[in-house]
Nucleic acid binder design. Structure first.
Ligand SMILES: [Mn+2]
Ligand SMILES: [Mn+2]
Ligand SMILES: [Mn+2]
Ligand SMILES: [Mn+2]
Lengths: 217, 217
DNA sequence: ACTAATATTTAGACTAGCCTAAAAATATTT
DNA sequence: AAATATTTTTAGGCTAGTCTAAATATTAGT
C-alpha cells in the first residue's frame, strides 16, 4: 500500500522520465515535488526498498515496471477526475488540476473503473493528455508542436504541454482551446514569435507559447 | 485548515452528540475513531486550541458552533459522495461507506456545491440520512422506529440507523430496501422479535434488526 | 590535474498522529 | 467514608515526512 506522498513521487518521476527520456536526478525531483533535495533522497531510498525504482547513490533514479504501473494508475485517476470535473460538473480546464491532485489518491479500483465507464472511456483529458486504460495502456498521439509548423501550415489544437492554471487562463483569454484550427501566418526570425490565425482573429504569440501547443495536421 | 484526522474527530463527535444528546467522553470517541484513549486526549486538546470544541479535563467534550459547522461540512460531503456512487456509478448501498470516508476530505467547496447540483440537490443519502445543504441546514425527518410499531401497523422504510456493510448486506439479502412497505404481523413477547410482511413475503426479524429500521407512516 | 562550483547524501531535529505504561482523577461498592 | 474499579490524563516513545546544516561526491573551469 502506498502513501499519498509515495504516489506523488512516482507520478512526478514518471512525468520527468517521459519529458527528459533519461535518468532523473534528485534536484529535478525536488523542484517538481517542491521539497528539499535531502527529503527526496530519503524518499528515493524508501521507494527503492519497496521495489518501485532503481536507485544508486549519486547516479539518479529510474522507475522499474512495478513503479511505472503504480505511476500510471495515479495518472489515470488524475486525468479521469479532471475529465469528470470538466464534462460533468462544469469546471473550466484551468480549475481542475489542484482538485485532481487530491482525488487521484482515492484508493478504490472499482471507483476508478466505474468512473471511467460513466465518462464513456475517454482517451484524453481536458488538456489533451492521454488517459491510460485499466491495464495502463494508452496511445501516444502523433502530434506536432506549433513551433515546428511552417508558414501557411495549419492544424487542430489537440493538447497543451504546460498545463499550469496561468497558462490555461492565458489561452482561455485569447480564446484558444482544444479543437481550434490554428494557422501560422508569419514567423518572426528575430525571436521566433508567431503570427497565427484562429477563426477570424489574427494575433501574435511568443515562441514559449508555441512550444506548449500541440497540433494534429 | 483541518487535517483529515481532525475532520474525522469532529464528524464522529458530532454523530455521538446527536446519538446520545449529552457531553461526549473520551472512551466513546476512542471506540468510534478506533484509537486509544490517550490519543483522543491529545487530539481533544488540539481541537480545543483551534476553537472547535469545549474541553475540560475529565469532564468530556462538546462541539462549539465552529466545530459543528466543520462537522456538518464533512457529513455533507460524505453523504453527497455516497449518493453519487449509488446514483451515478451503480454502486450498492453497502459498498459506498469506505470510499466516502476518503472522498469526504476533498477540500474544494466549489466541487461539493457543483456535485450537489449535479445530483439535483438530494435531501437524503442512500441510507436515508439527511444531507445538509450549503449552509449546513437539514430537515430532521419525522420517523418512527420499526420496533415501536404496533401489531397490524405499517409504514414505508425511509432510513437505517446502523449502516455497517454487514447490516446493509443482510437487508439486501432479505430484499429489504429504502421505500419498502413493511407491516408488523406479530410481535413475540419473549424476545420482542417481529414477524413482518414485505410485498408477498412474511418473515421474522430480531428486535436488534427492528431497532435499526426507521419508517414513515 | 587541481581547484572551484554544484549536486547529493548524511546527521540531527521537528511535527502530526499514533502507541504503551504509569499516574491521577472520578465513580462505584462495600 | 474507605476501598476498589474505572476513566482519563500524562510521560515518553515510535514512524512518516519534512527541514537545515554539514559532509562528501561529482562535474566543470582553468
Ligand atoms: Mn492536472
Ligand atoms: Mn490534465
Ligand atoms: Mn457512510
Ligand atoms: Mn450514509
Amino acid at each position: 500500500m502506498l502513501t499519498n506522498s509515495e504516489e506523488n513521487y512516482l507520478k512526478e518521476i514518471y512525468n520527468l522520465e517521459e519529458y527528459f527520456n533519461t535518468e532523473i536526478n534528485t534536484n529535478l525531483i525536488a523542484k517538481k515535488i517542491d521539497a528539499k533535495a535531502s527529503s527526496v533522497t530519503d524518499m528515493l531510498k524508501k521507494l527503492a526498498n519497496k521495489d518501485l525504482l532503481i536507485y544508486q547513490k549519486y547516479k539518479g533514479v529510474k522507475l522499474n515496471t512495478n513503479g511505472k504501473k503504480k505511476a500510471l494508475s495515479v495518472i489515470r485517476k488524475h486525468r479521469l477526475w479532471e475529465t469528470f470535473l470538466v464534462e460533468k460538473l462544469d469546471f473550466n480546464w484551468d480549475e481542475v488540476h489542484d482538485i485532481a491532485e487530491e482525488l487521484e489518491h482515492i484508493r478504490s479500483e472499482k471507483l476508478t473503473n466505474h468512473l471511467d465507464a460513466f465518462l464513456n472511456f475517454p482517451v484524453v483529458d481536458p488538456h489533451g493528455h492521454p488517459i491510460p486504460n485499466k491495464e495502463g495502456d494508452f496511445k501516444k498521439m502523433e502530434t506536432i508542436c506549433l513551433s515546428n509548423l511552417g508558414i501557411k501550415q495549419e492544424g487542430v489544437l489537440v493538447g497543451v504541454k504546460n498545463s499550469s492554471d496561468t497558462f490555461l487562463r492565458f489561452l482561455s483569454n485569447k480564446n484558444i482551446s482544444i479543437g481550434c484550427k490554428i494557422k501560422v501566418v508569419h514567423k518572426e526570425e528575430f525571436d521566433n514569435s508567431l503570427s497565427i490565425n484562429i477563426g477570424n482573429n489574427q494575433f501574435n504569440i511568443s515562441e514559449n507559447v508555441a512550444n506548449n501547443l500541440y497540433l494534429k495536421k
